[in-house]
Structure formats: C-alpha cells, structure tokens
Design a binder for these strands. Structure first.
Lengths: 155, 155
DNA sequence: TATTGTTATACTCTATAACTATA
DNA sequence: TATAGTTATAGAGTATAACAATA
C-alpha cells in the first residue's frame, strides 16, 4: 500500500468526521442544546449520577466551569444537584426526566439522519460499512491528543 | 435488512463521528486554535480571500460576530483585512502565511493520527473502508439540519 | 493539611440593536 | 433606501485566583 494512498484515505476519514460532526452539532443546536450541555447530559446518561468534580474531569474542564455549567443546567431543569451524604463536601448531579428526554430526542434525530442514508444501501455496501466501523472505532479508544483521558461516553 | 439493525448501524456511525470529532478538536486546541478560528481558516483556504459578510454566511454566524472574530484573528497574525476597491463598503479577508501554516499543521496532525491506525490494516479492511467512505461521504452533502447551507469546506 | 466546591473576575465567541459609510 | 461593516452591550462557556466547608 503506497504511503500517499494511506495519507489520502486518512484525510478522507478526518474530513468526513469534521463535516458530519458539524451536521450533528446543528441537530443539537436546533434543540437548543449547546455542545457543553449536550456533553454533560451524555456523561450523566452514561455514568449515572456524578459529582461536580467527576463531571469536570470527564469533560476536561476546570471545576469552576463545571460549577457554573451545572448550576445553569439546574436552572434550565435539565439536572438536579444535592449534597453527598457520605462526603458532605461533594455535590451529586443527576439527570431530570426533562434532561433525559432532551438527550434522547437529540439521539433519535441523529440516528434518523444517518438511517435515511443507510436504508438504500446494497448488501455489499452494508458489509463494507460494518467492517469499516470495526476498524474506525479503534480510533476513539486510544489515548487522546494531549495524553489526557477525554470521556468516550456521548451516547 | 431489519429496521433495528439499520438503527444500530446508524447509531454506530454518529457515535463514532461524535467521539472522534472530539479527538480532532483536541488537536486544534493543542495548537491553540479555537473551533471558530479553525473554521475561518478552513473557509479561507477553500474559497480564497473572502469578504467579512461572505465568511459570516459560510460559518452561519452574524456579521458582528464575524467582524470581531476576524479582527482578533488579524491581531493574532492569522489573516489580513483590506478595503474592497470595487465596492468600498466591503472588507476583504485573506490568510497570512502564518494562518496557512497553522491550518496545515492541524491538518497534518489529524492525518497522522488516522494514518497510524490505517497502516496496519489488511487489504480487505482497506477495501471495506474505501467503500464505506464512499457511502458515508454522501451524508455530508445533503441539506443541513436546519435547511441552511452550512459550508463544507473544512480542508 | 488536603479535598471539594463556590465566588470573583476576565477572555472568547456568540447574539441583537443602533450606528456609519457607501451604493 | 438598501447593503456592508462596525460599535455597544449582553449572555454562555471557559479560565485563574481566592475563599469556605468538610475530611
């Protein structure tokens, strides 16, 4: 396999992700869901309730940033906060039904968008996509760019 | 093909894009390149020089937002601005060598990241990825979520 | 003392409204 | 008048520094 050919394929992959990622964020925006809030909702859906500090680590932002984000999301009715009884320094954040519903609605719209394009595909295209996803999904599992451990929980 | 099976595959696609998109933005962040600035640099590399209003339309932000973004990018040495001689109301924005170099450096890091994962793939995996990209790239060409025409120029 | 979270303050990117200059 | 852009101002999300409460 020529080195150039691999480079071109690599470029196609990242450009696709960049372009389609934009479309996905537009879906969130249509639901009045900012990237930051979407990400916190996803983290809570994946991990269950979490403390403010845990969310800050998952999302790789500083504690004061997460304090504010979570406070505003509480005001918007997307999450609740309560003191941790075990360690009373901690504050435990949970999804509200409304937060969960919003997240599900974003998820459904995204699935619908992709699905619309998949239904017409031939069986061979289908198998190819399956094999390709198998390969590509490894890209999301290695370490992150800066050696941090960015959450992989955006469900 | 079962409807459920299509739905699961659709979910894999959008989750991959969401997760890997995050990794790609971390690369930009490491280069001290915000998503907004990255996107303007990409637009300029793709379209050549552009007026402030054109950039605002490409990027789907309001004129005052683009005025400020471009002004700050000029301060940072990434772009230049000059009066349009033909229509003296207009302001033409161009990439500086430094802006172009920054964009190229982001591009190279992204290609390198994907490439690292592709070099070890078998020939059959390779063909599958090729076919899958062919299908998936159509996802970035349809209409945008809100029926606007978001730029597809992030090269 | 160390940890968890908040408050105070500032910077970036976004918006709307009001303004200037040019067509 | 209409268009291109800017300035003024405000809100969201990020950061650092200083503080409070608990372990």
């Amino acid at each position: 396999m020529g080195a150039n050919k691999i480079g071109r394929q690599a470029e196609r992959v990242y450009l696709f992700v960049q372009h389609f990622g934009r479309r996905l964020r537009e879906i969130d925006a249509d639901l009045n869901l900012s990237p930051a809030r979407f990400s916190v909702l996803s983290a809570l859906a994946f991990h269950g309730r979490a403390k403010v500090g845990e969310l800050a680590r998952f999302e790789r932002v500083r504690l004061p940033s997460m304090t504010r984000l979570v406070r505003d999301m509480e005001t918007a009715g997307l999450v609740t906060r309560r003191r941790d009884r075990g360690d009373r320094r901690g504050v435990i954040v949970s999804l509200t039904p409304r937060g969960l519903a919003l997240l599900k609605s974003a998820r459904q719209r995204k699935i619908a968008l992709v699905r619309k394009h998949l239904v017409r595909k031939s069986a061979s295209r289908w198998r190819a996509l399956d094999a390709a996803l198998e390969s590509l999904e490894h890209l999301t599992r290695g370490e992150s760019a800066a050696g941090k451990e960015k959450a992989k929980h955006e469900h």
